Simulated assay, not measured.
Amino acid sequence: MITEMSRHRSYFTEGRLVVRCAISTTNMPLAHNLNKVSKNVLSSNGQLHMKGRKYKQLQRATLRHQKLIQKKVITNERKEKQLGLTLFIRDKVLGEDNKCYTLDELKSFVKDYVYRYSGEIEKLQKERRPGRPKSSRQQKLETLQESEEQTFLSGYIVPDLSDEENVLRLRAWNGTTGGVTSIRHVKICKESTHIPGEDCNMDE
């Protein structure tokens, strides 16, 4: 596979293959999962021109790769946050005798989650000397809290605590991503007036 392209015309050899390049690496980064496209270009044993078909093909393949990676990162971050909220609520109900919970109690758990760093934010604010900027930690926590406040307005996916059997499943859950699928989830927001009857997938 071509791993570097010179700004000047030169030859790159690998076995019997010789490719002459006239483009720079900054214009066309290659990724590891572009093997198929790269091999097709290499097998042609020709030149890569900046306006050529093969060059544009590599550009499109690289762009697709970057979009897939970005989408995967966003999806994983969302799942991680949802899993963290489910763990937070599980810890809230562990050790309690309640067979089920009301909507207000469930919303109270979510509110505790959203403002879980409020104490630390207040402490950092008091420790900040007059005229000094906020610490990176305080800025990070405030940004996170503001983001989660907005999410609460639009809706969080949470375990359905109105169902006794589901509460038992939540308490017995071992915290793994595989086990969480057995727990029924619903979507509630700050202004919800009832717990939805339909299930809500954590991947949504």
Rank of each mutant, 00 (worst) to 15 (best):
T3V: 10
E4A: 04
E4C: 03
M5R: 09
R7A: 06
H8C: 06
S10N: 09
F12S: 07
R16F: 11
V18A: 14
S24V: 12
T25G: 09
T26E: 13
N27C: 10
A31H: 10
N33H: 11
L34H: 05
V37M: 06
V41W: 03
V41K: 01
V41S: 05
S43Y: 13
S44G: 15
G46N: 14
G46Q: 15
R53F: 08
T62V: 15
K67L: 11
L68P: 04
L68E: 15
Q70N: 14
E77F: 04
T86S: 07
T86F: 01
T86V: 13
I89N: 00
R90G: 02
E96I: 01
E96M: 07
Y101C: 01
T102G: 06
L106A: 08
L106Q: 10
L106I: 11
K107N: 01
F109R: 01
Y113Q: 05
S118L: 08
S118H: 10
G119Q: 13
K123C: 06
L124S: 03
K126W: 10
R128T: 12
R128N: 09
R132P: 00
R132A: 14
Q139N: 14
K140V: 07
L141Q: 06
T143F: 11
E146W: 08
E148G: 02
T151V: 07
L153Y: 09
D160S: 03
L161D: 00
S162R: 01
L170C: 02
G175K: 02
T176Y: 00
G179E: 08
K187C: 12
H194W: 09
P196W: 02
G197A: 04
G197H: 07
E198C: 13
C200R: 04
D203Y: 07
D203A: 05
E204C: 07
